[in-house]
Design a protein around this nucleic acid. Structure first.
Lengths: 131, 131
DNA sequence: TCCTTGCTTAGAGTGCACTCGAAGTCAGTA
DNA sequence: TACTGACTTCGAGTGCACTCTAAGCAAGGA
């Protein structure tokens, strides 16, 4: 990590794309792609034109990571991002979107667990020695 | 469902591809594709050359459905299928394969639950009215 | 007779989420 | 001086799991 990253506020822009790639597990290509499609605000630039991401950018990427890890499609993440950009008037709608997504994730977990039972049963059968 | 489906043994072949499609939720196209790539044994044929699936075929498809629903890639399902075809000598290996898969699924569930906590937190924040 | 459902092969198309390549430039570091 | 890593556009490629089309034919039911 760069020395410049040791101090500073949430909005101070200091991480290079390479550093952010390492921290988030996304590739530099993907970060630029996120920016291009609108998932990510255009980050600050250094005086040489290189991207410099802030703590706030990292936080946003981490949240996108949560959505992604729970299987939200990019199109829905984009919708959410646009609501955030649209300001406080969209808070209720954002909340509903997250709640609907949570329901889907819960349903997926239940589904996985149900299917897991069948797997367990099959594994048990193999543990004995018929069929 | 056809009348012919009312009685008969596990190995009696009686379901048309359309009936199987309806029962499994897979399309007729996909069923033929499964057969072509080796996920499914060639089913019996009627005297006119049409596929006639047995109860046993349906059972196998249901099990494949479990694997699929837990996110097993087709390549791994194929590996498992080949082990089944190879006979009883592969039972230990099949069991290990299923156990390894179960571990992955459990890990995925844990991961979903962890990410869900963040979502819950965010939803809570929206429930109040800051940030 | 017409409609539905089935059959065949081989290949193309779909949707998602990246992922990479080309091709050239620029800045900082060892 | 050489190397590394950043920059640009933008289109093509990847991998997965289907999904469909074409084109023509056959059987069964209303």
């Amino acid at each position: 990590m760069s020395q410049a990253a040791v101090v500073g506020s949430e909005f101070e822009a200091r991480y290079t794309i390479g550093e952010v790639a390492e921290r988030t597990g996304l590739s530099a290509h993907t970060l630029r792609w996120y920016e291009r499609i609108g998932l990510l605000d255009h980050p600050a630039r250094s005086h040489h034109g290189q991207r410099r991401f802030s703590e706030a950018d990292l936080g946003w990427l981490a949240f996108l990571g949560n959505l992604r890890a729970t299987g939200m499609p990019v199109a829905a993440m984009l919708r959410y991002t646009e609501l955030v950009r649209a300001g406080d008037g969209t808070r209720a709608e954002r909340r509903e979107l997250l709640i609907a997504h949570r329901e889907e994730v819960l349903a997926r977990i239940r589904d996985l667990q149900a299917n897991l039972l069948v797997l367990d049963y099959k594994i048990d059968l193999y543990g004995q020695d018929c069929q």
